[in-house]
Design a protein around this nucleic acid. Structure first.
Length: 260
DNA sequence: ATGGCCGGCGCAGCCGGA
């Protein structure tokens, strides 16, 4: 079972790119972030035509997350628990059933947190604390559970081509990195980092020729519960998609589990 | 050369992104 995460940067502007990648990669489950669409505007018919079930948690203009799955999506929940006043659409979760048992997938678009010195950075850290609390509760289920998405956190210096350029950025603050480590310490595995010690990226800014110069960062992550980690066959990044026409600034990251 | 973009909204140019 191939499970992928991709910050699509506007699903309506990117629908042809998304369909092309779905045909090529044929993932079983996809978590999308930054759909930048309300639920009614999501291009579900084209995606359903490729054999996917679709659930969305949209918002007008920005943010928004979705799950696509070849298998039926059960127990769908929208929004991250812990703050009823939070109106931003950044989390969706669902369960799929396989012959080997259930797989639970949480899809997140973690707040950017920039610029520092505004209310956005404490919002990011508070959101990460809520995520940890929710993740701990899910770990108690002892299921194969994957927390996939755009974390907006550069975990370590190796995860940026030019770490010095990020020292005053919310993505690379000690507090952001510590919160990411605290999440891992609950029992998750950073699947991609566990698979390679090489420098690999998932995002290249549109500006300044970052793609051409390989000025990337690794901020899209797949965290696996112990029960999911046991089933990992492979982990990868579809880097070539960044070179396509009308690319997102992020590329898909995927894990292949031997649960089918 | 220390900068170079993009989508949404809505129809100009600002906001948000990372």
């Amino acid at each position: 079972m191939k499970i992928a995460t991709w910050n699509i940067n506007g699903v309506k502007a990117r629908i042809d790119t998304l369909l092309a990648w779905l045909r090529e990669a044929s993932p079983d489950i996809v978590g999308l972030q930054e759909i930048k669409s309300v639920d009614e505007g999501f291009p579900r018919l084209e995606i359903e035509a490729l054999g996917y079930n679709v659930v969305t948690h949209g918002q007008k203009g920005f943010n928004g997350v979705a799950i696509l799955s070849k298998r039926p999506l059960e127990d769908v929940s929208r929004g991250l628990p812990g703050d009823p006043a939070d109106e931003q659409s950044r989390y969706i979760e669902a369960v799929v059933s396989t012959a080997g048992g259930v797989v639970r997938v949480g899809v997140l678009y973690l707040p950017n947190g920039n610029p520092l010195g505004t209310e956005k950075f404490p919002y990011k850290l508070a959101w990460m604390e809520r995520l940890k609390r929710h993740a701990q509760a899910r770990l108690e289920l002892e299921e194969p559970f994957l927390l996939i998405g755009d974390y907006n956190v550069i975990p370590d210096p190796i995860d940026a081509r030019s770490p010095a350029a990020w020292v005053n950025d919310a993505l690379f603050q000690p507090e952001s990195r510590a919160a990411f480590r605290a999440l891992l310490a609950c029992g998750f595995t950073d699947a991609l980092r566990a698979s390679t010690t090489a420098q690999v990226f998932t995002f290249w800014d549109y500006q300044a020729g970052c793609w051409q110069r390989n000025e990337g960062i690794r901020i899209d992550h797949i965290l696996t519960s112990p029960q999911a980690t046991d089933h990992i066959r492979a982990v990868g990044i579809d880097k070539h998609v960044r070179g396509w026409e009308k690319p997102s600034d992020h590329v898909p990251v995927f894990v292949d589990l031997d649960l089918d």
